[in-house]
Structure formats: C-alpha cells, structure tokens
Amino acid sequence: MQNEMTIERLREIVEAYGASPARWPEAERPAAEAMLAASAHARALVEDAARFDALLDMAPVEAPSAALTERLVAARPRAAAPLVQPAPDLRARTTRGFFGGLVEAVWPYGSPAFPAGALAAALVMGVALGSTSGISVLDTDNSVAAITDTEAGEGLIALAMADQAWPEEWMQ
C-alpha cells in the first residue's frame, strides 16, 4: 500500500471507487481524505464523481415480493421427529417391586393378565373336550398311540403325530 497520497493516486481511487470515502481502500483513506481537505483540485475530482454516483444510484431496485417471502418460509427446514423414544418413568417402575419387574422383563408387551387368562381358558377347554370325547392317550416305548372310536379319528391322530404309516386313501 502507498504511504504518500498524490493527486494522481486520488484520481485513480475516485475513478474506481467513486466519491464516497467509505468505499475507498481502508489503508489509503486517511491520506486521501487529508488531501481532499487540502486541495481544491481533489475536491473537484470528488464532486464530479459524486454527480456520476448519483446517476448510478438511479438504477431501479424493487423490494422482495410477499410471494417470494412466503415461498421461502414454506421451504424452511422442519424440526426432525425424535429418533429415540422418551425415557420411561423410572419411579413408576420401581414401585412395582421385584416380582412386578420380573413379570415385565418376561412379558414387556403390556398387562400379563391377558396371555395368562388365555392360557387358563385353553387348559379348561382341553380338559372339558377330553372328558366328553372319550379320547385316551397311552405312552409306549418310542411313540404315542391314540385309540379312538372311529377310523377317521385314527387317521387324524396319525397325521397329527407325523406317523410314517399314512392311511392309503389319504395318499391317493
């Protein structure tokens, strides 16, 4: 940067940056302003540049339309949904005690009363059905054989037990 200001350098500055010292190179501004205060020639240069600046300032400009602003607001980033579920209420868990915690660890999908009730109902239905149909189950050495009153019943039991001796009529 130049330390000394000359009228030629001031002319170059004004011809490039215009009349406003605010636009002049910061390092040269004090020296240029000092010359402006001291020299009528320098002031004439700047006054001419100011008239030209005023002409340039006539270039039209418009404010942003409301539609542009609203389009941009509509396109703004949105807060992302949280990827992690909120932390459970630990105090509520501790009040269930040891067995409550154990039950929740085994069956964490809500109340365990529902599956327990369904299991009990299935047991009752099975006992009732067994006592009324006359089916009995006997243990043998390697397999379980079922004796029923009808042939169709035998076939069903054999199929259910994956017996290799399929009734012939079922294979056709």
């Binding site: 602003t69 607001v73 703004r76």
Partner: peptide
C-alpha cells in the same frame, strides 16, 4: 432447528 421466526429474521436482514 426449523425456527420460523429465525428464518424470517434472517430474510429481513439479507433478502
């Protein structure tokens, strides 16, 4: 973070 007021403030300042 999706702050609408911040979006508007930034536009007021620079748009």
């Amino acid at each position: 973070t999706g702050d609408e007021a911040a979006c508007r403030a930034l536009m007021d300042r620079h748009l």
